[in-house]
Amino acid sequence: MSQTPAYKRILLKLSGEALMGDDSYGINRATIEAIVGQVKEVVDLGVQVGVVIGGGNIFRGVSQAASGMDRATADYMGMMATVMNALALKDAMENAGIIARVQSALTMQQVAEPYVRGKAIQYLEEGKVVIFAAGTGNPFFTTDTAAALRGMEMNVDIMLKATKVDGVYTDDPKKNPEAVRYQTLTFDEAIGRNLKVMDATAFALCRDQGLNIKVFSIFKQGALTRVVLGEDEGTLVHC
Rank of each mutant, 00 (worst) to 15 (best):
A204V: 09
D22I: 00
A6Y: 01
R9P: 01
V42F: 02
I32G: 10
E189H: 10
I98M: 13
V62D: 01
D144E: 03
T201G: 07
E126K: 02
M93K: 11
S67I: 01
G230I: 04
I32S: 10
V83N: 10
T31G: 02
L160F: 01
A133V: 14
M108G: 00
D232P: 01
K8D: 15
E189D: 11
Y76K: 07
G127H: 09
F187N: 02
T142E: 08
G46H: 04
E153A: 07
T184H: 14
G16C: 12
A86N: 09
Q3K: 13
K220P: 03
A66L: 14
L149F: 09
E231C: 02
Q103R: 13
A100D: 05
T143C: 09
T142F: 11
M79Y: 04
D75Y: 01
F141K: 07
A74M: 07
Q3P: 10
A148D: 03
K13R: 12
V180I: 06
K175G: 13
I35Y: 03
Q109T: 11
K175Y: 05
G151P: 04
G151K: 02
G167F: 04
G234D: 03
V228F: 05
G192P: 05
T201C: 09
L11Q: 11
L87W: 10
K196P: 09
A112R: 05
A86K: 05
D70R: 05
A86L: 11
N138Q: 08
K174L: 09
K119S: 10
V39R: 05
G230S: 13
T225V: 00
L89M: 14
A86S: 15
E125G: 12
D75E: 03
D75R: 01
T184R: 15
A134P: 13
V130T: 09
G54H: 10
E153M: 09
V129S: 00
L106I: 15
M198R: 01
D232G: 04
R71H: 01
K119V: 01
Y182D: 14
V130C: 06
Q103W: 12
I158S: 06
D208T: 00
M77P: 02
S217P: 13
G127C: 07
E113T: 01
S2W: 09
I121K: 15
I27Y: 04
G54P: 04
K161Y: 08
V42Y: 01
T143G: 08
N155K: 14
D144C: 02
T136E: 00
N28E: 14
Q64S: 15
D70I: 07
R9W: 02
L205F: 06
M69E: 11
Q3E: 15
G192K: 13
T235E: 13
Q103K: 13
R101K: 12
N194I: 00
F187C: 06
D70Q: 09
Q64A: 15
I32L: 14
Q122C: 07
S63H: 03
R71A: 03
A223K: 02
A86H: 08
D22A: 02
G16S: 12
L45K: 03
E33V: 01
T145I: 10
M198G: 04
T225A: 02
V215N: 08
D157T: 11
A66N: 14
D199T: 07
G210M: 09
T4L: 00
A146I: 09
K196T: 07
L19K: 06
G192F: 03
L45H: 06
E125S: 12
T186N: 06
V165R: 11
A112T: 11
I131R: 02
T31W: 00
E125R: 14
S2L: 12
